[in-house]
């Protein structure tokens, strides 16, 4: 993974209404969402968003409905124009692009996967998957091979001649993903891509995405309202509430140190043993413990360590990375990490 910043959003504001510029001044003067709606009859969509997205990482933007996450992702390819702020992609300001340049950005640099699939019902699966190519003017014999390759890759072998309505929801979204991959763009925007699917298929699709990502290293911006999904996919997690960023960072970090009651509420229900990983809980040391019960990998989740310990609460394990000891983890620390932050704060009160 490289540390290059692929997409950089700076001081982005979006206000919906007839006269957003006046309203913008009010917001920058410190007016809140409710007050803005009451006094100016404008809706505050996004407020002072600053996010850096690294190349080859999955950035997950999470928030409840109405938090502005779908609005935010549409700013990246300018399906929605911002009120103020800047969006840099590879250091270039997207907002300065003219129509022609913007079209090239959408055709070659960014592809998008939609919540409701948004396939063309009158075109076959193959033609749908090949859409980014025929939009660029390629002929059928030129795009057929490429589209078939990606259809096969997402598990739709031999379905090319079907029509979208003949496929199930999960398969339709596979076509949606194949379509995004066919464009061969370095950036993929996924707008609640798996939210319309039922849980088992959703898990399948998440695994498929992670699998593809291991191989392709695209810069993925993923929108979701589901915390489990966010934690599973995210390299970088951004939590959005009422149009502003509440907290962003490494998901494990957010889980262990939430900085806002909103996030505490959010994470109180999840299965921490499955989400937290050894690396976040371990004590960094190279000294070998005396009573090590064995070795665990640095990216194992706590659940697997508990399973390994067989319930013993006094065990200590060596944490290994690439065959080297990176630290130790005691069952005591592990158990502490499992207690949700909310419970801890209640005790304090």
């Amino acid at each position: 993974m490289s540390d290059d910043i692929k997409i950089s959003i700076k001081k982005l504001y979006k206000i919906f209404g007839d006269d957003p510029q006046t309203a913008l001044e009010a917001v920058q003067g410190g007016m809140g969402k409710a007050e803005l709606l009451e006094k100016h009859n404008h809706v505050l969509g996004l407020q002072d968003i600053n996010i850096d997205m690294r190349a080859g990482e999955i950035t997950v933007i999470m928030g409840l409905s109405g938090s502005g996450k779908s609005t935010l992702i549409r700013h990246l390819n300018r399906l929605i124009e911002p009120t103020s702020g800047s969006i840099l992609i590879d250091g270039e300001d997207v907002l300065a692009y003219d129509e022609e340049r913007l079209r090239r950005l959408r055709r070659e640099w960014m592809s998008m996967v939609f919540q409701k699939f948004a396939l063309l019902p009158h075109r076959t699966v193959l033609e749908n998957a090949a859409l980014p190519l025929w939009v660029r003017g390629f002929k059928e014999e030129e795009f057929e091979g490429e589209a078939t390759k990606w259809l096969d890759r997402v598990g739709l072998e031999g379905q090319g001649s079907q029509y979208p309505h003949q496929l199930s929801g999960g398969m339709q979204q596979r076509v949606g993903i194949a379509r995004a991959l066919t464009s061969n763009s370095p950036v993929m925007l996924m707008d609640e891509a798996f939210s319309a699917l039922d849980p088992l298929i959703r898990t399948d699709m998440q695994d498929l995405l992670l699998d593809l990502q291991k191989e392709l290293h695209k810069t993925i911006v993923f929108i979701t309202h589901d915390l489990d999904e966010a934690l599973k996919l995210a390299d970088h997690l951004v939590i959005l509430k009422d149009g502003f960023v509440v907290q962003q960072g490494e998901p494990q970090e957010i889980l262990l140190n939430p900085n806002d009651p909103y996030i505490v509420d959010f994470i109180s229900d999840i299965n921490r043993a499955r989400v937290l990983r050894v690396r976040s809980v371990m004590e960094k040391t190279t000294s070998v413990p005396e009573h090590s019960q064995g070795e665990v990998a640095i990216d194992d989740n706590l659940e697997s360590v508990i399973a390994k310990s067989g319930g013993a609460t006094d065990a200590i394990y060596q944490v290994m990375r690439d065959g080297q000891q990176a630290g130790i983890i005691s069952m005591k620390d592990l158990m502490k990490a499992l207690v949700p932050t909310e419970a801890a704060t209640r005790e304090v009160r």
Binding site: N77, L79, L102, R103, R104, L105, R106, R107, M110, S111, M112, F114, K116, F117, A118, L119, L120, P121, L131, P132, V135, R179, S183, L189
Partner: peptide, 10 residues
């Protein structure tokens, strides 16, 4: 949604 997809793919 389909129109949006058409726009998004340029």
């Amino acid at each position: 949604d389909v129109i949006e997809a058409a726009d998004a793919f340029g």
